[in-house]
């Protein structure tokens, strides 16, 4: 019997469940390697070569090179792992999160200062926001 996944109809949200954890294993372990200063240095000075040391799919590698966080998440990445990439780039969680929303950094920051994104209209896929 299939697993119950009640979270699949939450809009704009990817839950890092068993299937995604398996899919993103190598991508996420590559991210873990960036917790060492020497690896960050090596990655930033030759990204493609560094990525080729990991058993990631071509799509995963390209998403990293593009810093396309939504794509990385769709390919099994988890934000706490991916944070090692944007931290290596000197980018904050706020900036990284804003890059996934289609808002500019300033628009996003202002939205947060105004109390954040409302849950109204954002609970179910298809619900009008």
């Amino acid at each position: 019997m299939a697993l119950d996944k009640p979270y699949e109809d939450v809009p704009g949200t990817t839950i890092f469940d068993a299937e995604r954890a398996r899919q993103g294993y190598h991508l996420n372990q590559f991210c873990m390697s960036l917790m060492k200063a020497e690896n960050r240095e090596r990655f930033l000075s030759g990204e493609r070569a560094y990525l080729d040391e990991w058993r990631m799919t071509e799509d995963q590698k390209q998403a990293v090179l593009d810093r396309d966080y939504n794509r990385m998440i769709a390919l099994g990445g988890n934000v706490y792992f991916l944070s090692k990439i944007f931290s290596s780039d000197g980018i904050s969680f706020e900036q990284a999160a804003s890059s996934m929303t289609g808002q500019t950094r300033d628009e996003y920051r202002q939205m947060m200062l105004n109390g954040g994104r409302s849950p109204d209209g954002n609970r179910y896929v298809g619900e009008e926001g």
Binding site: G12, T13, Y69, M100, T101, Y108, M112, G116, R117
Partner: peptide, 17 residues
């Protein structure tokens, strides 16, 4: 408390919750 760090719904805050 409430927060979402990923995807197009990032920035969600639910003060009532």
């Amino acid at each position: 408390m409430s927060h979402q760090l990923q995807g197009p719904r990032a920035g969600l805050i639910n003060s009532e919750f």
